[in-house]
């Protein structure tokens, strides 16, 4: 149950939301679309779930063409839009029952699939969906998207606005669903979640920057990266940016990620420069590239 995306383009007026996108998602894969807001992720989801027509190109989901066989696709896929899109005035159980009914099934029939997720919100099953917390809303939305045993699951930014603990739980659930043979396409603006996918596509301004496994993507990072720290981070960023040989400077956690233009870069030289500029407690250490570094590097080009 794979997804083929073949040279898809879509524009709204003059804005190119998607520009010649081609992605191949294998059956049973957990595939991530990683990119900032406005990169075109939602547009791609809507095209694949047959809600929008592409301007150019073609795509198929689970073997069905998104234009000709849109009705077949609508029976096969589960879709969780980025915005919470359940009935706020219905209770948890009523929402779930409604979605089961319109897909011609019952909660009992597919309870196995959603059990892990649903047990966590079942104590609140008589609460109106609008009164749930962010994390519980996501779990309910996922339950509703899964209740008809879809072969392909589309999750558009499922963890946006969800607390870190719930986010972690959510990804564990995705892993379990993947183990049940469901192909999952998930988008997220969080780079740390990218590492949890089998493969990811980095996307920005409607273009694919790179598609690969998270591991390969960070290994492809072309330059050595250094963590740089000092007593005054603000001054440090300012001085690093002013350094003639700098290639890139990004704040990353408590340190600054720094790369140099030169091949034979000597950290001691940088230390001397920074000391000269009045910085104290200078710390420079070689580190590994992250997906975020790669993204920033690719986005620059």
């Amino acid at each position: 149950m794979s997804i083929h995306i073949d040279h898809i383009s879509k524009s709204y007026g003059k804005v190119n939301a998607l520009d010649d996108i081609s992605i191949q998602v294998d059956p049973g894969e957990l595939f991530g679309l990683i990119g900032p807001d406005g990169a075109g992720k939602t547009t791609l989801f809507r095209i694949l779930t047959t809600l929008l027509l592409p301007d150019h190109g073609s795509a198929s989901v689970a073997g069905y063409d998104i234009i000709a066989d849109f009705k077949a696709i609508r029976k096969q896929v589960g879709y969780m839009p980025g915005r919470f899109s359940l009935y706020q005035d219905l209770t948890v159980e009523e929402n779930l029952r409604f979605f089961a009914t319109i897909f011609g099934t019952t909660i009992a029939e597919n309870y196995d699939l959603i059990r892990d997720i649903y047990v966590q919100i079942e104590p609140f099953k008589n609460r109106r969906a609008g009164k749930l917390s962010g994390g519980m809303k996501q779990k309910l939305a996922l339950s509703c998207a899964l209740i008809h045993k879809p072969k392909v699951l589309f999750l558009d930014e499922p963890t946006t606005g969800v607390d870190p603990v719930s986010r972690k739980e959510f990804w564990e659930m995705l892993k379990r669903l993947q183990a049940k043979g469901i192909t999952i396409l998930v988008s997220t603006p969080y780079m740390d979640e990218a590492a949890l996918c089998d493969r990811i596509a980095l996307i920005q301004d409607g273009r694919i920057l790179e598609i690969d496994t998270p591991k390969a993507i960070v290994e492809h990072y072309p330059k050595p990266i250094f963590d740089v720290g000092a007593h005054n981070t603000y001054l440090l960023i300012e001085k690093l940016n002013a350094y003639v040989h700098k290639h890139s400077v990004f704040p990353f956690g408590e340190y600054i990620h720094y790369t140099d233009q030169r091949d034979g870069f000597d950290p001691l030289e940088l230390r001397a420069y920074l000391k000269n500029e009045g910085l104290q407690n200078i710390h420079i250490e070689r580190t590994k590239a992250t997906i975020e570094d790669t993204f920033m590097e690719l986005a620059k080009q």
């Binding site: 809507r46 009705k71 839009p81 919470f84 899109s85 897909f103």
Partner: peptide, 12 residues
């Protein structure tokens, strides 16, 4: 409310 989106992506 965006629920039309989900109703459209359903066999209804």
């Amino acid at each position: 409310l965006g629920t039309m989106e989900i109703l459209l992506v359903s066999p209804l």
